[in-house]
């Protein structure tokens, strides 16, 4: 299935009138939205609503990471630090400058996007493990900076970040917050789809595979690297902001360590690096497994380490890859059948 859409030829939809094409394109999203709207009623208690919010925030993070790492092939370990930047920026905007959540969220998202562009600059000259080291260094310095800056709570933590207000009512309830997080997550997924299915996504994949050949095809490699870092940072910033304003509105640098980054990587690797659904599937599964194994905290790290190793060994393209293979096999079988019939 890869990320291309139409089955052989691209002419399959030729006869479809424009209006029905539009609805066919948007109907699944609408259906998904309605399903997600109703989801809180299907879950028994507020803890599940809380976990839903965590899942969706992780989805936003993982989708962003998948864009820069899976599609553009830039090995970054700094994504979690960008989430921290978004979270603290949003917290400062809201708690210190008194901006409402609805302003702080986009402001923090844009701010993180700008920081993301800065983080992307080393990628002009560095690749692979060296880029990973550079981004790791940047990520750690963000954490250290937070840890020593009294203005944002230093190592004691940034507390009393105001919740969003909706028509004068504060949104501290997990269900209410879900209705803020969910549309944002869905819109985030939708944007990622549009980006990755368009020429931008193709250019990302081209520069992941071969920057020189991409340049020879007219792809401005630096611009697209920066674009990938910036887009993923926008996702991280949005997710960070959502973390900050979720009850009880408390942030601490300990929540943005390399362990969290590895968990995030696990989501993307398990879901399928460079697969359009990779981030979503991975984030949902990992967050749920993480929650289900909460009681077995002694073994949690061992479980997750094993899953990473096994995935990389036996399922290098993740769950997304498995699904792709399934569809590809089916398509080949169909083609063969068609040929046999024709003959």
């Amino acid at each position: 299935m890869k990320d291309t859409s139409t089955p052989t030829g691209g002419t399959a939809q030729q006869g479809v009138p424009a209006g029905s094409r539009f609805s066919r394109r948007h109907l699944p999203w609408l259906a998904g939205f309605v399903a997600l709207l109703l989801l809180p009623w299907a879950t028994p208690n507020a803890y599940h609503h809380y976990i839903l919010n965590i899942i969706l925030i992780n989805v936003i993070l993982a989708v962003g990471l998948n864009i820069v790492k899976g599609f553009a092939g830039q090995v970054t370990v700094g994504h979690i630090a960008l989430a921290a930047v978004g979270a603290y920026a949003s917290a400062v905007f809201a708690a210190k400058f008194g901006l409402p959540f609805w302003v702080a969220l986009p402001a923090a998202t844009l701010f993180t996007g700008m920081i993301g562009a800065l983080v992307g600059i080393p990628s002009f000259r560095l690749e692979g493990a060296y880029l990973a080291l550079a981004t790791l260094g940047l990520a750690e310095s963000v954490r250290v900076f937070i840890g020593v800056t009294d203005y944002i709570g230093a190592a004691i933590g940034f507390s009393d970040i105001p919740p969003p207000y909706f028509f004068g009512r504060s949104v501290v309830d997990h269900v209410a917050y879900y209705y803020i997080v969910m549309p944002l997550a869905l819109v985030g997924i939708y944007f990622s789809f549009c980006i990755l299915r368009s020429d931008i996504g193709r250019s990302f994949k081209a520069l992941r595979e071969d920057p020189l050949a991409a340049a020879a095809c007219g792809v401005n490699v630096r611009k697209y690297k920066l674009l990938a870092f910036t887009i993923s940072a926008l996702y991280a910033g949005c997710a960070g902001s959502l973390q900050a304003h979720m009850a009880p509105g408390f942030l601490h640098p300990n929540s943005y360590t390399i362990t969290e980054m590895v968990t995030l990587l696990l989501m993307v690797v398990l879901g399928g690096l460079g697969h359009i659904w990779g981030g979503v599937v991975g984030a949902v599964i990992v967050t749920i497994i993480y929650d289900l194994t909460r009681d077995y905290y002694q073994y949690q790290m061992a479980i997750f380490g094993t899953v990473i190793v096994l995935t990389v060994l036996y399922m290098p393209r993740g769950i997304g890859g498995l699904i792709d293979n399934y569809f590809a096999t089916r398509r080949f079988v169909a083609i063969r059948k068609a040929k046999a019939n024709a003959a």
Binding site: L36, A42, L292
Partner: peptide
């Protein structure tokens, strides 16, 4: 989307 919803329902 169905799959994702199914996962969440599994959680519930």
């Amino acid at each position: 989307l169905l799959f994702a919803s199914a996962m969440v329902l599994a959680l519930s």
